[in-house]
Amino acid sequence: SAAEHNWRFSNLYGRGTAFGELYEGLAKDIESMSDGRIAVQVLYSGEGVGTAGLLGAVKSGLITMGAPFQSMHAGELPAGVVEIGLPGGTDDPVKLNALFHDQGWDVVLKQAYGSQGMVWLEPYIQPPVYIITKNPINSVADFQGLKIRAPGAYGKFLRNLGASPVSLAWSEIYTSLATGVIDGSIGSNMIDHRDGNHVEVAKYMYRLPLAGAQVLPIVVNRGAWKKLPEELKAAVQKATENHAQAQLSKSKAWESEAVTEMKAKGLQWSPEASDADKKAWADAGAGLWDEYASQDKYSKQLIDILRKSQ
C-alpha cells in the first residue's frame, strides 16, 4: 500500500559507507515505527543536493529531512557552528547530553532552526576533528607558520596558534599534501582522513582534537512536519532518539577502526602534548567564544548557557 507521507532524507555520506548505512537504518526505523505510513527515500552524497545546498533544500522542502554538516552553513545559520562544538569543548557524552537536553541548548536550537522554517529533532554525537601533518608536531610552537587546510572556526583557532589556515576543495587535499602546497589538514573526523587516504601523503596525527566531539543535527522541513499527526511525530521523534544511541556507539567503534587501518599504513601519533601545550590549546579556543557570541543572537544564547554550565 502507498504511504501517506513520502519523505526524502539527505545525508552527506556516500552510498555503502558505514555512516551512510546508519542513516539508511534511521530511514527504515521511521518507516517501521510509523507502520509504513511514512516512506523515506534516502539520498547519499552528491545525489540531487550538494553539501553546501543541503540546509537550503530542507528549508525549501526540496528535501524533507536532512543530516547537514553545520560548518558548511556557517554563513546561513551561525549558531550551527556553536552547536557542532567550538574548539576547546567537551567530549563527554554525558555532559553533552545534559547540555542539549537539560540545560537548554535544545530550546535555543529549536528557535534558531525554527526561525528558518526547520524543525530541529535530535543531536548526534560524532567523533572529533583531528589534524594530520606531514611532519611531527613536537610542541604547539611547531604549528608556527604551518599551512593547514582548515575552514571557518577551525581556521581561526589554528591562526591563534600561529598556523596559516588555507581554503581548499576537499578533493584537492590529497594532491596538496602530496606536493606540499599544505603541511597539514583537518578532516571532519578520523574516518574522513582514512577515506581521503591522507595517511599516504602525511603521516602524523596530532593528539589533541580541535573540538572534543562534534554534534550534528537532524532537521525536518517545517511544512512536512506540520502535516504529520501527533502519533507520527512521536514515532519519528522516537526513531531519531534511538538513532542517537546507535550513532554514539557505532561511531566510536568506526573511529578506532579507521585509526587502526591508518596505523597499518604508517600513521604515527605526534608526541604527547605537555601541560603548557594543553593550556595554549585551550587559550586559543577560548578567544573564539566571545567572538562567536558577539556575531549572532542564538550563538550568544548557546554560549551563555555553556559558560553557566562550566
Binding site: S71, A74, G75, E76, S115, Q116, P151, G152, G155, K156
Partner: peptide, 14 residues
Amino acid sequence: EFDYRRQGEWAPPM
C-alpha cells in the same frame, strides 16, 4: 532577511 554569507572565515555577504 537572514544576512546570508559564505561559510568561510571571511564570510562575505551572498
